[in-house]
Design a protein around this nucleic acid. Structure first.
Length: 276
DNA sequence: AGGTTGACCTGGACGC
DNA sequence: TGCGTCCAGGTCAACC
């Protein structure tokens, strides 16, 4: 489900509901794979803390934790990281609502509500970190990077530009949908070597990527299969997909049949005419 | 070191 | 209806 716009939608939704709340207890499922930090450490770190804010860094949801509700005491520096993987959901629910199947963590809040992490496919990961100055993620932030800095990211890279966009240690937050959609809008072949993009192509890709991400965030992300935001509401950007999920359909710009290939191990759809 | 591939999971869609 | 196959928005370890 979750690339940058979807994760940002969820993070903002959860922030609006739980910022300023205190976590009174933590339950975890015991499925080892879900927990990147030991479950006992997660429970100890979260229990009794106030949630200062919930935000997105890369594809992770970051919960900043405090020892006290106000700024009087120092920040704990502790943060709870939620990576949604493919099917993870972070829900805020009343306690009487039955736990969905595949619930792996429940944070009980002082007002009785619960923050629930649900993940059928178990590619999601929960962890706690204590980084002074805050968690910064594996790569650079695509929504705010300048055109100049963007064009330096791919210098000398031999991998395909599509694979480079998906590499979280280069640029974090972009996944399969927004890689394909931004390459289409920039008119660039997904298989072109990243280091061989011209100055003009880099400028177009920077522009297209930021435009597509901003527009998707505005629409609440893309709802493909089971994605919903913190309220259980679907996003609408999938209606604007020009190539993702449209292999074999005709290009909306030129009428050519959209082609499906595999790049960097991922299904990739592009227009052979518009992306040359 | 950079780049590529397969493994990790469950469930939904599709074909027979 | 039921069963088998294929596919999925993401990482990451293990290879080349």
């Amino acid at each position: 489900m979750p690339e940058l716009p979807e994760v940002e939608t969820v993070a903002n939704g959860v922030h609006a509901r739980v910022a300023g709340q205190r976590i009174v207890s933590v339950w975890t499922s015991g499925k080892p794979q879900t927990f990147k930090s030991p479950e006992s450490e997660i429970a100890e770190t979260l229990t009794g803390k106030w949630i200062e804010r919930v935000r997105r860094v890369g594809k992770s949801i970051v919960m900043d934790l405090r020892e006290s509700p106000r700024n009087k005491k120092i920040d704990t520096g502790a943060q709870f990281l939620v990576h949604l993987g493919m099917t993870g959901r972070l829900l805020v629910s009343q306690p009487e609502v039955p736990l969905p199947p595949h619930t792996h963590a429940v944070l009980s809040l002082a007002d009785g509500r619960e923050v629930r992490f649900v993940d059928a496919r178990r590619f999601g990961r929960l962890s706690v970190v204590k980084q002074i100055g805050g968690y910064i993620g594996p790569g650079v932030e695509p929504t705010t990077i300048s055109a100049e800095e963007f064009s330096t990211l791919f210098k000398g890279r031999k991998l395909a530009i599509k694979a480079a966009l998906l590499n979280q240690s280069i640029l974090h937050g972009v996944g399969n949908i927004y890689a394909d959609e931004s390459l289409f809008r920039a008119g660039i072949r997904p298989r072109k070597q990243a280091g061989k993009l011209t100055h003009a192509e880099l400028a177009r890709l920077h522009e297209a990527l930021q435009a597509v991400l901003a527009h998707a965030i505005k629409l609440g992300g893309s709802s493909v299969s089971d994605y919903v935001d913190a309220d259980g509401v679907a996003g609408f950007f999938q209606l604007e997909h020009k190539v993702y999920g449209r292999a074999g359909e005709l290009c909306s710009d030129c009428g050519t049949a959209l082609k499906k290939i595999v790049v960097g191990g991922r299904t990739t759809v592009y227009c052979p005419k518009c992306q040359s």
